[in-house]
């Protein structure tokens, strides 16, 4: 099992670099042996990193197996998903690869609108909810004098996004397939 020290790399970008340098050659070898090309290896690795990040890094879950084995497991499962070999899939049963659905046209449109009208707000909100920054780091990153100011701004930004949803007469159900 990995220790906290082993995974304490300062930035997300540095983690991505270390995943590429440490794992991408093995992923390429796996894909190449099965007849896949470089483009497919890149595509599956990118998807695997997003899945790993959302399912394991963000919630602070340290896998029993080494991080590399987990990411490799996700890549294998994605490959098998695309090649419909269900029996082999079951052998990798414990690794969850709930697919990353493409955002609907409605979400695309709203994201575009929100980026155009309030990119700073969206950046602040995603830093907290998606990158998992604490309020101390968030206030430093966005230049607020205190954690309290950053907290108030976070809720103002959330209100702004919610108002946009309200103006379009939408609710959460409209985002579900």
């Amino acid at each position: 099992m990995e220790t906290i020290e082993q995974v304490e790399i300062t930035t997300r970008e540095e983690r991505i670099v270390s995943w590429y340098e440490g794992l991408f050659p093995a992923v390429c070898g796996y894909i190449q042996k099965r007849g896949g090309d470089f483009e497919l290896a890149k595509e599956l690795f990118q998807e695997a990193l997003v899945i790993y990040y959302e399912k394991y890094v963000l919630i602070g879950f340290l896998p029993q197996k080494a991080e590399s084995a987990y990411i490799m497991g996700i890549v294998k499962k994605l490959w098998l998903r695309d090649h419909k070999t269900q029996r082999r899939m079951e052998q990798l049963g414990t690794i969850d690869i709930t697919e990353l659905k493409q955002p609907s046209p409605l979400i695309h449109k709203l994201l575009h609108l929100l980026e155009a009208s309030g990119k700073r707000c969206m950046d602040l909100l995603q830093s907290f909810y998606y990158e998992g920054l604490n309020m101390k780091d968030l206030s430093r990153k966005f230049g607020y004098g205190s954690e309290r100011s950053a907290t108030v701004q976070k809720y103002k930004c959330l209100e702004k996004v919610r108002d946009e949803v309200n103006q379009k007469s939408l609710s959460y159900e409209d985002f579900l397939d």
Binding site: L114, Q126, Y129, Y130, E131, V161, L170
Partner: peptide, 10 residues
């Protein structure tokens, strides 16, 4: 819904 949009943006 707003949280969902933030997640998609992230």
């Amino acid at each position: 819904a707003a949280q969902h949009l933030v997640w998609q943006y992230g």
